[in-house]
Amino acid sequence: MPRVIFNTATTLNGFLADTEDSLSWLFVVPGAEGAENDFGRFLEGVGALIMGSTTYEWIVEHEKLLDHPEKWPYAGKASFVLSSRSLPAVAGADVRFRSGDVRGVWDELRDAAGNQDIWLVGGGDLVGQFADAGLLDEIRVSVAPVTLEAGRPLLPRRLESDRLRLEKVTQAGQFAELVYSVRPA
């Protein structure tokens, strides 16, 4: 069975994105290149990924994927987008739009991943739904030396310490990388 992993970056005070859903704060942090190298190795072990509509829309807009679909960053990976809205597809990309509860897409997502991991790209509410369903195995978070006044929270759920176990701490440039295993409720 594949592991379900939330791998993301966050500000020091726990925001994934600012109030405009921008990640501009992330791209100016010194040492981000080192963290990107480690991410490439992580992505090699991913068989399928899933994201919410806001995350998908940001990627499509930021990379201008409707005009340049060849830049789809997850080629060769089954990519699921959970949304209640109709969204534009990136030509040639294996993007599967689904709606409803995460339990409703679980079998298809698991089958698409095969023997590889499932990456929860974001956002935090989607990850919270996986945690609520007992389907979240690991949280990998790179903490950047940035604070924001407000924004999208890392994980808008209450997970107590009896469900989280710190497994690893490393440094990559200015980032502190934390890996937690997650036990079902």
Results as ranks from 00 to 15, higher is better:
Pro30Lys: 07
Ala48Gln: 11
Gly34Asp: 06
Arg157Leu: 03
Ala150Arg: 14
Phe80Tyr: 10
Ser79Lys: 02
Val127Arg: 06
His62Cys: 00
Asn115His: 05
Arg140Asp: 01
Ser142Tyr: 01
Met51His: 02
His62Asp: 11
Pro2Ile: 07
Glu36Phe: 13
Phe130Ala: 10
Gly40His: 14
Val141His: 04
Leu148Tyr: 04
Gly134Asn: 05
Ala133Trp: 12
Asp94Thr: 01
Leu148Trp: 09
Val105Glu: 01
Arg96Leu: 04
Ile5Thr: 02
Leu23Asn: 04
Gly14Phe: 10
Pro69Asp: 10
Val141Leu: 13
Thr10Ala: 15
Trp106Ala: 14
Arg110Gln: 14
Trp72Val: 00
Leu126Pro: 03
Asp137Trp: 07
Pro184Ala: 09
Ala17Tyr: 08
Arg110His: 04
Val179Phe: 09
Glu44Asp: 15
Phe80Glu: 05
Gly31Pro: 02
Glu108Leu: 07
Arg3Asn: 07
Pro153Ile: 13
Ala172Val: 08
Trp119Phe: 13
Met1Val: 04
Thr10Phe: 07
Trp119Tyr: 13
Leu166Lys: 13
Glu61Cys: 10
Trp119Ser: 04
Val90Glu: 13
Asn13Ser: 12
Ser83Ile: 13
Leu82His: 00
Leu166Phe: 12
Pro73Thr: 08
Ala91Ile: 10
Thr170Phe: 01
Pro30Val: 02
His68Ser: 14
Arg110Asn: 04
Gly45Cys: 06
Gln174Pro: 00
Asp94Phe: 00
Leu12Ala: 12
Glu63Thr: 01
Tyr180Lys: 12
Leu164Tyr: 00
Val29Arg: 10
Pro30Ser: 03
Thr54Asp: 14
Trp25Pro: 09
Gly100Val: 10
Asp21Asn: 15
Glu44Ser: 11
Leu12Lys: 05
Leu66His: 09
Phe39Ser: 06
Phe175Pro: 03
Gly134Lys: 14
Arg85His: 15
Val146His: 00
Ser83Cys: 12
Leu87Asp: 11
Glu70Tyr: 08
Asp162Phe: 10
Leu136Pro: 04
Gly47Met: 12
Val81Arg: 05
Gly124Tyr: 07
Leu65Lys: 03
Ala144Leu: 13
Val29Trp: 09
Ser142Arg: 14
Ser22Arg: 14
Ser86Pro: 02
Asp137Leu: 10
Phe80Gln: 05
Val179Arg: 15
Pro69Phe: 07
Leu26Lys: 08
Val182Gly: 12
Tyr180Phe: 15
Arg41Thr: 11
Glu20Asp: 15
Ala89Glu: 13
Gly128Glu: 12
Leu155Arg: 08
Ala131Gly: 02
Thr10Asp: 04
Ser181Gln: 13
Glu149Lys: 14
Leu166Ala: 13
Tyr56Pro: 09
Ser181His: 05
Gly173Ala: 10
Pro153Phe: 07
Ser83Pro: 06
Val28Phe: 03
Gly45Val: 00
Glu177Asn: 15
Asp111Pro: 00
Asp117Gly: 00
Asp107Phe: 00
Arg110Met: 08
Val46Asn: 06
Ser79Ile: 04
Asp21Cys: 05
Gly47Asn: 06
Arg163Asp: 02
Gly52Arg: 08
Leu12His: 01
Thr55Cys: 14
Trp58Met: 13
Ser24Gln: 14
Asp137Met: 05
Arg158Cys: 00
